[in-house]
Simulated assay, not measured.
Amino acid sequence: MRVVALDGSPAAVGVLVDALREALDGGPAVLPIAPGAAAPATVPEAPTGTAVAIATSGSTGEPKLVALSAAALRASATATATRLGGPARWLLALPAEHVAGVQVIIRALLAGAEPVVQDLRAGFRTVDFTTATEGLGSELRHTSLVPTQLGRILDEGGRAVEALRGYAAVLVGGAALPPALHDRATAAGVRVVTTYGMSETAGGCVYDGVPLDGVTVDLDADGRIRLGGPTVATGYLGQPAETSAAFVDGRFVTGDLGRWRDGRLEVLGRADDVIITGGEKVAPAAVERVLAAQPDVEAVCVVGLPDPEWGQIVAAAVVRGSTTDADWIEPLRTAVRAELGRAAVPRRWQAIAALPVRGIGKPDRAAVMRLVSKPDGDRHHIG
């Protein structure tokens, strides 16, 4: 196993690009390591055909190494090219140690040209995104972002948005895309494609709610999403029990709940996040979607808090826009009640300046729980 340490620089990504090229052609498997992270003292032996191992903590926080074969990576990249209209030049604006970053590199290599790499040593900066985009030239171009990055570009405006409009497709994944942000991007002329997937499926495998060619999606009796097809990982290195539990009959059993709506997969959030309040089940993602669609809501995270009477109560942390309406809670309560019913209406509300995030932009629910659990004196309301 070849370990490639990354530091956010294009030079380090260049080393990874060369290693991935060799791995796709049958060379040693590659393990990219995040900046500042220590390489594991030992790496379990990888199954034959493994090209990449991706470190992931999943929803449990327990570290795992996901084994992805060259065949799975190629299948994913080929299906993406087919869905997006053919080969294109790619900009890598994501951390290269994540599966989404690795897949940008794989797609670019299979399209015949290395990706243009944005320098991330100072974090994601819109000026660097604009400069890197100019390096793609006039060919058909694609990139992949997380919602936080998309929001920063739209907030910046000017040349940054002009650069974003120049992409034939902007894949957005890693976290749920708020409806208001999606609408802003569309209004700005940005061609957004929402993606759903994870390290265990070689990255995004459902685009705009529709599975890529060859990908299968089914729901078990509880609504849990199971993903199959050629992009599914081999398993977790050195963890046979975890592999057997998560990979069943050629499918990866996700921790997410979903439903089919108008022929498209709608992800309802993590099964572990479901709130049981007064005997009723409430999916936080469903409440978040309703709230995020309301005026003056820029971002929101919904969690469950322990409660002696109800078992749990629904709590919402809300990033508000520019208005100063003192009665901002009641319209939100009304919207949730009308769409999802009384049980889903949050009983605790708190306005915050920004959502805490982890990784490449996922809401940090544990941090949100701490915020909305603070004693009186912080801005919150129960009702």
Rank of each mutant, 00 (worst) to 15 (best):
A353D: 15
G27P: 00
G101R: 00
E62T: 10
T131F: 08
I33N: 00
L94I: 03
A241T: 15
T231P: 02
T324V: 09
P63Q: 04
T133E: 03
P230S: 13
G123Q: 11
V336Q: 01
L145P: 04
R347I: 12
D325H: 13
F124I: 05
C205L: 12
R21Y: 06
V303D: 01
W328C: 05
T78K: 02
A72I: 09
D18E: 13
G204F: 04
A113Y: 01
L265S: 04
H182R: 15
V357I: 14
R264E: 12
L212R: 01
G85F: 03
R2P: 00
V267H: 07
D183F: 07
R261K: 11
D208S: 10
F247H: 06
C301Y: 00
S59T: 14
F129V: 00
Y207I: 13
P115M: 07
R259F: 06
A11S: 14
H142V: 15
G361D: 11
D273I: 08
A71M: 05
G137Q: 12
L109C: 05
G377T: 14
Q118N: 06
E330P: 00
V336A: 10
L91W: 00
V146E: 02
F124V: 03
G238E: 12
L68K: 04
G203Y: 03
F247K: 12
A241M: 13
E22I: 05
A338T: 14
P346C: 01
S144R: 05
T186A: 15
P356W: 15
T80F: 12
F124L: 04
A93I: 07
M198V: 11
L16A: 03
I153T: 07
G377Q: 14
G197F: 13
A283C: 05
V300K: 06
T201S: 14
V15Q: 13
G158N: 05
A286K: 02
A293T: 06
H182W: 14
A132I: 02
E200W: 07
P40M: 00
E162I: 02
V314N: 05
A111M: 07
R370Y: 05
T126F: 01
V99I: 15
A67P: 07
A245I: 09
P44D: 00
R224H: 03
A75N: 01
S244I: 09
R141L: 11
A292Q: 00
A335E: 11
Y236Q: 07
A34H: 07
A53K: 04
P178K: 10
T60Q: 08
D155T: 14
A111Q: 04
V161W: 12
L227T: 02
R107E: 10
G151N: 02
T82R: 13
A221M: 11
G269K: 06
E298Q: 10
R191S: 15
T130Q: 12
G235Y: 10
A316Q: 01
A11T: 11
A285V: 01
L305E: 04
L136D: 08
V104H: 03
P179A: 13
G173C: 10
A343C: 11
S76T: 12
R337K: 15
A5L: 15
G255K: 04
A168E: 08
D128E: 15
P28S: 12
E298I: 12
L305G: 04
G255S: 15
R2H: 13
L120K: 03
G26P: 02
T148K: 09
